[in-house]
């Protein structure tokens, strides 16, 4: 019954994007990365919803918003297995998983305090070294970090 209700909520979106299967502890990082605070769209954020896969999950529904690959793939760094449902006229017309990009620009903060990026007004650039383990390397100081060390700017 509750499962149905959730489905219903998702389907209730006329046009827009549903980001599903977000780990709960990463939900608000995803909100931040996508810059949802600054949007005027109708947005529903579901927190601690029941999930067969994750136990608990987060979900975000954004009306009338369709992300480009570059925009949405930014969240892969914190929520690599999130699923995207693209809704048009109450129908899911596309489902896809977020993909880890090769390069992350202006998202991750370098953990090296002596890195130039932490001392100059500039964007950080990280190269994704290992997509499975989520290892990223700073373009400037070459310092590598793994997922649990990653801080979002």
């Amino acid at each position: 019954m509750s499962e149905n209700k959730q489905e219903l909520q998702v389907a209730a979106l006329k046009d827009g994007t549903v980001i599903d299967h977000i780990p709960c502890d990463k939900l608000f990082m995803v909100v931040q990365i996508l810059g949802l605070e600054d949007m005027t769209n109708n947005i529903t954020i579901g927190f601690n919803l029941d999930s067969k896969k994750l136990g608990k999950k987060g979900i975000i529904k954004i009306a009338n918003k369709f992300f480009s690959d570059d925009e949405i793939n930014r969240i892969s760094i914190v929520a690599p297995h999130s699923k995207l449902n693209i809704i048009r006229d109450y129908e899911v017309i596309e489902k896809r998983e977020v993909q880890m990009p090769d390069v992350l620009v202006g998202i991750v903060k370098c953990i090296n305090p002596k890195c130039i990026t932490n001392n100059e007004p500039m964007k950080t650039i990280f190269h994704v070294v290992d997509k499975d383990k989520c290892v990223v390397r700073c373009h400037y100081c070459d310092k590598e970090q793994v997922r649990n060390e990653i801080k979002i700017i």
């Binding site: 002596k114 130039i116 001392n119 373009h139 400037y140 100081c141 070459d142 310092k143």
Partner: peptide, 10 residues
């Protein structure tokens, strides 16, 4: 010569 790492690349 700079004391910060990555300064030259930037």
């Amino acid at each position: 010569r700079h004391y910060l790492e990555g300064a030259a690349k930037y």
